[in-house]
Design a protein around this nucleic acid. Structure first.
Length: 442
RNA sequence: GGCCCGUUCGUCUAUCGGCUAGGACACAGCCCUCUCAAGGCUGAGAGAUGGGUUCGAUUCCCAUACGGGCUACCA
């Protein structure tokens, strides 16, 4: 793996907690984290909780749990969701006050109607950006009139631009990787860094994530909440994988990658400049690709989380059962229904399918199969298949005449795992019992 | 309105002046087949528009159009 030796790189994710982790925020965090891990640098988490109304402890907790779920661990940052210590802006007002005073002493800030404004240079600013190149920001009409922006409101609270720069400065951030929506603001930030006689960090403005229809993805939009994907049965490595592909690509057509493969390949120059639309279908596919490759032990744990009733069940049976489901189920949230016939006594039965499957002809065939299965020597998938096919051949019927009632008898459903495998997992006793029940004999 | 960024199949993307424009998701068809999937094969599907520069432009430059962002005593 590349980039294990430590480097000077120090990046940060500085979200404002508003209730849950937004998919766009998650992607920004991810890119920062990937860059830190790739370069062997440091990843800092800083909570911008200056809005006491919205930044409740619950909101902070949701944010942190979202990052933890994704596996984006921070080298420096809060230990918990209680706002204490250096990584909460709400706890750093003394630092900001001192820095504002410094600017005032230098004559670079002044009071204006109770607020404090920063003396912004009156000319265009060149923003060197690792992704966008050298961006020349001209003054807007409004800025021509009033170029000096407020850094402390009249209620005494410092504004985003100020605290953001001060924190980056004090924390020794070397690379600011953030959404392109901040590109224009960067002129202000650079001026602030200069005013403090600090060389600005390198900037990398990453493209935004848009909705499927191309509009801006906002908090309320479908799929915007990371938590929603979590609850829908997506695995974090898949979400990480899919998100990494939005605005970045390894350039070699790789798509399904493990986290360490992504870390190895990730770098700033490969980031695109154009916004990307969020495609739920592709994310689902990525999820499926990861799901089917998971180690069984992990799959079992996720199954339990997904509400599959595994308690008290024999582990060997559980694993055998789940492995017949793993390559079929696309989302963990579907797993419970898909596997119910293995684990629940009153699993659901599709009566319509039952009527179609249990025709008189099929019943007779099933009865015949039952007797053969009672006698078959080894009750494994291969033997069961061979046996079923020979019965079909002798009766001169298509295999589906046997398969359909057998599937109905065993699972009650039209779709499910491979019939032969599922029967071998259920075991002879159970299969015969279910056959009998379907035949009305039990 | 002003300022900034962007524009390759429906979507995510490859292409660093030579392209019969490649891959993936989704879609269609076929094959395989115990259901459903998966898998295999095939197909349809793109360089916003107009000017330059060049022997040659998807690639470089300019305009226009379209999309996005910013323009707060929000973050």
């Amino acid at each position: 793996m590349a980039g294990i030796e430590s480097s000077d790189v120090c990046v940060r994710f500085a979200p404002s907690p508003t209730g849950y982790l937004h998919i766009g925020g998650a992607r920004t965090a991810l890119f920062n984290w990937l860059y830190a891990r790739h370069t062997g640098g440091k990843f800092v988490l800083r909570i911008e909780d200056t809005d006491a109304q919205r930044n409740t402890p619950e909101a902070i907790a949701a944010l942190i749990s979202g990052l933890r779920w994704l596996g984006l661990d921070w080298d420096e940052g809060p230990a918990g969701s209680v706002p204490e210590g250096d990584f909460f802006q709400s706890q750093r007002s003394g630092i900001y006050a001192r820095r504002v005073e410094e600017l005032r002493k230098k004559g670079m800030a002044y009071e204006d109607e109770g607020a404090i404004r920063f003396r912004m240079p009156r000319e265009a600013v060149m923003i060197p950006d690792l992704i966008c190149g050298e961006v020349v920001r001209e003054l807007t009409d409004r800025e021509q009139e009033q170029p000096d922006f407020v850094i402390v409101r009249s209620d005494g609270k410092p504004v985003f631009h100020l605290v953001n720069v001060v924190d980056d400065m004090e924390m020794g951030i070397t690379h600011v990787i953030r959404g392109e929506d901040h590109l224009s603001n960067t002129a202000k930030h650079m001026a602030l860094f200069r005013a403090f006689d600090i060389e600005p960090p390198k900037f990398a403005h990453i493209p935004l994530i848009l909705n499927a229809n191309g509009s801006k993805m906002s908090k309320r939009d479908e799929g915007a909440s990371l938590e929603a994907w979590q609850q829908a049965g997506f695995v974090p490595e898949a979400v990480v994988n899919y998100l990494s592909l939005l605005g970045w690509s390894p350039k070699d057509d790789s798509e399904v990658m493990t986290v360490s493969e992504i870390i190895e390949r990730f770098d700033l120059p490969q980031i695109n400049r154009a916004n990307a639309r969020f495609d739920a279908e592709k994310m689902q596919w990525v999820n499926y690709e990861h799901l089917r490759e998971l180690p069984l032990e992990r799959y079992r744990a996720l199954a339990e989380e997904a509400g599959v009733g595994l308690e008290g069940k024999d582990v060997e049976y559980v694993d055998a059962a789940l492995s017949t489901c793993q390559e079929k189920v696309k989302q963990l949230s579907d797993l419970r229904a898909f596997s119910a016939f293995y684990f629940e006594d009153d699993y659901p039965v599709d009566e319509i399918f039952g009527e179609k499957a249990m025709t008189p002809e099929n019943r007779a065939a099933l009865a015949e199969l039952r007797d053969k299965y009672a006698a078959v020597k080894i009750f494994d998938a291969e033997s069961l298949e061979r046996c079923l096919k020979s019965v079909a051949e002798r009766l001169e019927v298509k295999v589906r005449v046997l398969v359909q009632p057998a599937r109905f008898a065993c699972t009650g459903q039209k779709v499910g795992p491979s019939l032969y495998h599922l029967m071998s997992v259920l075991g002879r006793g159970e299969v015969l019992a279910r056959f009998d029940r379907a035949l009305g004999k039990a």
